[in-house]
Simulated assay, not measured.
Amino acid sequence: MSTHVVQPGWFTVNVFNRAVSWLTRRGVSIWGSRVLAVRGRKSGQWRTTPVNLLTVDGQQYLLAPRGHVQWTRNMRAAGGGELRLGKNVDVFTATEVADDDKVPLLRAYLKRWKAEVGVFFNGVGPDSSDAELRRIAPDHPVFRITVTN
C-alpha cells in the first residue's frame, strides 16, 4: 500500500477548511462539500473534516486528494460514518475501491475539482491518459458510499 500523504498547510487547516466546514454545517454546499464524520480508529471519538462528495453514474464516492490521511485510515477501520450538510445527516457504509477501478473516478474528480486540488496529483489531470491515472491510483484512496438511513 502507498504511504503517500500531503499534509495541509496552516492556511488550509485554520482558514479554508474551517470556512468550508462552517458553511457546510449551515447547509451551504461549496461544489458538493460535506462534513465527513468518522470514528477515530484509536480513540473511538468522532472526527470531522470537509470533503468533496463525488457522484458518478448515480453512485457516491469519497476520494482523498491528499493521499492516505487520517480520515482514510479511520474510514478503513470504521467501515463508514456520516456525511453532514446542514441538519441533514446521511449515515453510510464505505467500501474501498480497487486501484484498477479508480481511473474513471480520478478523472471525474479532477474534472470537477482540479482547480482546488490539482496540485496534489503530481501533474496528472482530467485529460491525462488512463495509464497516468492508473499510476497515481495507489496514492489516492477512494471509497464507494452506500447511504443506510
Score class of each variant (00 low, 15 high):
G40M: 01
E116S: 14
S2K: 05
V5Y: 12
R25T: 00
T93F: 02
T24R: 01
A108D: 04
A64I: 07
K42G: 00
I145V: 14
P141W: 08
V124E: 09
L85Q: 12
D127W: 08
E96F: 03
L85N: 05
G27C: 12
K87S: 15
G27Q: 13
G125I: 00
S29P: 11
I136L: 13
N52S: 15
R73H: 08
K87F: 10
P126N: 04
V13N: 15
D130G: 04
W113H: 12
V56Y: 06
V117A: 13
D139Y: 03
T72P: 04
V103R: 11
R66K: 12
S43H: 06
R107M: 05
I145A: 11
L105K: 09
F11K: 13
R34H: 09
V38I: 03
M75D: 01
F11I: 11
T49I: 14
D139T: 08
V124K: 06
S29T: 04
L23E: 03
R18S: 03
T72N: 05
W113P: 00
R135S: 10
L23F: 09
V91G: 02
A115V: 00
V6M: 12
T148A: 03
V69L: 02
D99C: 04
A137T: 05
P50K: 13
L54D: 04
L110Y: 07
K114F: 14
E82W: 10
P104L: 06
R134F: 09
R76S: 05
T148Q: 07
S128D: 10
W22G: 09
L106M: 12
V15M: 12
N52G: 13
G32D: 13
I136Q: 04
